[in-house]
């Protein structure tokens, strides 16, 4: 299935990474590579738009947890936007929903960064 990406960089140091596809053991390494390269640019905030992600497994969650760790270490913001019910379910089962900053849409996630 694979994943596709769309980047959007704003002038105020915010990068939005929109992911399209399914985040599983096959595609998570590619997502991790993209995020890792973003971490190195030391943007003020990274917003991951998950509205086009229909499925996520533990490897996908683990990849996003790395973003959380980057955020804690760098004091930059790492936000998730547009979680579908299917994706939100997995975060809830993992009891990680309250750990991440989540927003209904990327527009909402852009506010206050």
């Amino acid at each position: 299935m694979g994943v596709k990406f769309h980047f959007d960089e704003s002038d105020n140091g915010v990068t939005t990474l929109a992911i399209h596809g399914e985040m599983d053991m096959s595609s998570s390494p590619e997502v991790r590579d993209r995020l890792t390269s973003l971490f190195k640019t030391n943007r003020r905030a990274i917003i991951v738009d998950l509205s086009k992600v229909a499925y996520i497994d533990s490897s996908g969650i683990a990849t996003l947890v790395e973003g959380l760790q980057w955020s804690h270490a760098s004091k930059n913001k790492f936000r998730l936007a547009g979680l579908s019910p299917a994706v939100r379910d997995v975060f809830e089962i993992a009891r990680l929903l309250s750990i991440f900053e989540t927003f209904a849409s990327k527009e909402e996630a852009m506010e206050g960064v």
Binding site: D57, S58, A62, V65, E66, Q69, V90, I93, A94, L96
Partner: peptide, 13 residues
């Protein structure tokens, strides 16, 4: 569950 770190979630699920 109190360890927020990558990995180890599959078996938990």
């Amino acid at each position: 569950l109190d360890e927020v770190k990558p990995g180890g979630l599959g078996t938990f699920f």
